[in-house]
Simulated assay, not measured.
Amino acid sequence: MKNRRTFLKNTTLALAATTLPLPYFACSKPQKKLGIALLGLGGYATNNLAPALMQTEYIELRGIVTGSPEKIPVWQDKYDIKDENIYNYDTLPEIANNPEIDVVYIVTPTFLHKKYAVMAANAVKHVFCEKPMAMTVEECEEIIAACDQNKVKLAIGYRMQHEENTQTIIKWADTKPYGTLENVHTEAGFRIGSSGGWRLDGAKGGGAIYDMGVYPINAMRYATGLEPVSLTATHETERPDLFLNGAPEITYFDLEFPNGITAKGRVTYADNVNFLKVNCADGNYELSPFQSYNGVQGSTSDGKTLAPCNCNQQAIQMDDDALSILNGKPVIAPGIEGLRDIQIVEAALESGRNGGKKIELKQY
Rank of each mutant, 00 (worst) to 15 (best):
C129D: 15
N85V: 10
N85H: 11
D90G: 06
E142H: 13
V118S: 07
K71H: 01
C147L: 05
E139A: 11
T108H: 03
V104Q: 07
N88T: 08
N98D: 09
E139P: 10
A155N: 04
I101G: 06
I156H: 13
M119N: 03
V74W: 07
N88R: 04
A145F: 01
C129F: 11
T110W: 05
E141A: 13
G67Q: 12
A96S: 03
T66C: 03
T136S: 15
E100V: 08
K151A: 01
G63H: 11
D148I: 07
M135F: 01
F128Q: 02
E139K: 05
Y105Q: 15
A123P: 00
A120R: 03
L112C: 13
Y58S: 14
V152L: 08
E138V: 13
V152E: 07
Q149V: 09
A155Y: 12
C129R: 13
G67K: 11
A117M: 02
G63C: 01
Y89D: 09
A96E: 00
T108S: 14
D83L: 05
V118N: 01
M135D: 04
N122L: 03
K82N: 05
A120H: 07
L61G: 08
D102Q: 03
K115T: 15
C129S: 15
M119E: 02
A134C: 09
V118W: 01
V107M: 12
Y58F: 15
P69Y: 03
V124L: 10
P99L: 09
A134P: 11
A134W: 01
V152I: 14
A146V: 08
I95S: 00
L92A: 02
E138A: 15
M133D: 02
H126I: 11
E57P: 06
V65P: 10
E139G: 03
Y58P: 03
I81F: 04
E84Y: 13
V107L: 14
E57C: 08
K78Q: 15
Y105P: 00
A121D: 00
I156T: 14
E139D: 15
S68Y: 15
W75K: 03
E84I: 09
E94P: 00
E138L: 14
I106P: 02
I143T: 07
A117T: 10
D148K: 15
T108R: 14
V137G: 07
P73R: 13
P99F: 12
K125R: 11
A155C: 08
E57G: 08
N97L: 01
Y105R: 03
A134Q: 09
E94C: 05
T110H: 05
E57A: 12
K153N: 08
F128H: 14
I86R: 05
C140Y: 14
K78E: 10
A120P: 02
K151P: 05
P109K: 07
K131W: 02
K78H: 13
N85R: 12
A96P: 01
P132T: 15
T108M: 12
V137P: 09
Q76Y: 02
I101L: 03
K82G: 05
I95N: 01
K82D: 04
G63M: 10
A146W: 01
E60F: 12
A146M: 06
A134T: 09
H126G: 08
M119W: 04
